[in-house]
Amino acid sequence: MENSAKERVLNICTELGEDLESESCVKLREFVDTCPNCAAFVDSVKKTVSLYQAYQPEFSENQRDKLLTILKLK
């Protein structure tokens, strides 16, 4: 695939702001899976998102108490 065409295909999901698991992106991935370099790129974007999704903070009772006090709802 020529670079400009490849670039266009690979950017479809992100240009559309689509969910990477949406039907159209899954179809796109099936297509780019035939191109190892394209597949590695799409996979790395998906893994970037999953890394940021996995990083979860904790909200403590102490933080809740402080918030309710500030809001005068305690």
Partner: peptide, 27 residues
């Protein structure tokens, strides 16, 4: 913003690497 000619495949379970402080700092 540009697509390169060569990409290396990332490990299959990158979320497990969150235990890696260096990765968290980089994120």
């Amino acid at each position: 913003d540009r697509i390169q000619d060569n990409y290396t495949r990332w490990p299959d379970s990158p979320a497990q690497q969150l235990l890696d402080d260096e990765l968290r700092e980089q994120m």
